[in-house]
Computed example of a mutant assay.
Amino acid sequence: MASTTEIELLSLDTIRTNGGRAEFVGPQRPRFHLLALVTAGSALHTIDFVNYAIGPGTVFWVRPGQVQQWGRIHDFEATVALFTPSSLDALTQQVLYGSAHSRQAVWSLGGADLETITAGMRHLVLEYGSTSASSLEIRAAILRHTLTAILLKLTDMGGQANTSTLGHSDVFERFHDAVEREFATVRSVSEYAERIGYSEKTVLRATRSAAGMTAKQYIDQRVVLEAKRLLSFGTDTVTQVASSLGFDDSANFTKFFATRAGLSPLAFRRQIRAR
């Protein structure tokens, strides 16, 4: 990661060459953002245990803390932007992370939308490789603002909120944010409702409308996702994973995980690492 700009532009071919074949075999959990525009070929790319078919015109965005698996990385080409969270200003982060569309992982673009994002990525590449006499501060600012424009445009392309859910969007987003902060220690819907200042009934209704599941299922789903991330990447034992997620013992965690994921934590770890 370039220390001056906190933004780095690379071709996928360069990433493959620098990393070596072994780098892309198992799951990865980067601490930085990875934004890729696929320019040729096709493959499957896995983000947080969901497989996405990618091809020319596909954009995928892996956020810090998410787990990705490259699959057949030699079967496609892409332009890739790597950037740290701090390369985005506070207002941009608030806008980007403040809607359900900001959690979208993959876009299949065509027409004017693809032209817009392609032009933005091309501008990033040209500015990143520029040898002009501009100061480092000016070039860094241009990179940040261009990247910001691309990310905001992608988020806007995510679609418009259904008008039937607008009345609940603020409630759900507050609930979502609270779950993100406290899922490892808080499991009670009523406690979340109290913390965000709404009735439990309102939170239940908003979550059902926005996410298509109960509020308790939403909490449990977030815990399972984090468990999968920890089990797929790193060396923590099942007992250590259980403890980090607020479980008193590994037996309770194993039962919780198996009921919702369909297999035991150890079986999941073996399965995901065998891919």
Rank of each mutant, 00 (worst) to 15 (best):
T185L: 06
V171F: 03
T163R: 05
I196Q: 04
T155H: 15
G246W: 00
N162Y: 07
A206Q: 04
R174C: 04
T131R: 12
I150E: 14
R144M: 14
S232Y: 00
D236K: 02
E200A: 10
L143K: 08
L152I: 13
D170T: 01
L126H: 04
S190V: 12
L154F: 15
T148Q: 15
L143E: 13
L204D: 10
L147D: 07
G234Q: 02
G167D: 13
V203A: 02
F233C: 06
H176V: 05
K216V: 14
L225R: 09
E226W: 03
L126W: 03
E200C: 06
G167T: 11
L166F: 07
D156V: 08
S135G: 14
L136H: 06
A149L: 15
D236I: 00
L151C: 15
H168R: 03
L166V: 03
H176T: 07
Q160P: 00
T148Y: 02
D220F: 02
E137W: 02
L245F: 03
E137M: 08
L136C: 08
L147F: 07
G212T: 12
R139A: 12
N162T: 11
L126D: 11
F172W: 06
N162R: 06
Q221N: 09
G129A: 12
A184L: 00
L225W: 03
Q240W: 00
S132Q: 09
T165E: 11
Y128D: 04
S199A: 11
T235M: 00
K201R: 12
E182H: 13
H168C: 05
D170H: 05
M213G: 05
S232T: 14
A141K: 13
A178W: 01
Q217A: 13
D177H: 08
S164I: 14
D220A: 13
T237L: 01
S188D: 14
A242L: 02
A193F: 01
H145E: 15
T207Q: 06
K201F: 01
A210H: 02
A178T: 01
F233N: 12
R205D: 12
F183R: 03
A140V: 09
A227I: 08
G159V: 14
I219K: 04
D170K: 07
L152K: 14
A178M: 03
I142C: 13
V179P: 00
D220M: 10
Q240N: 10
L204E: 08
I138S: 07
L136S: 12
L136R: 07
D220I: 12
G234P: 14
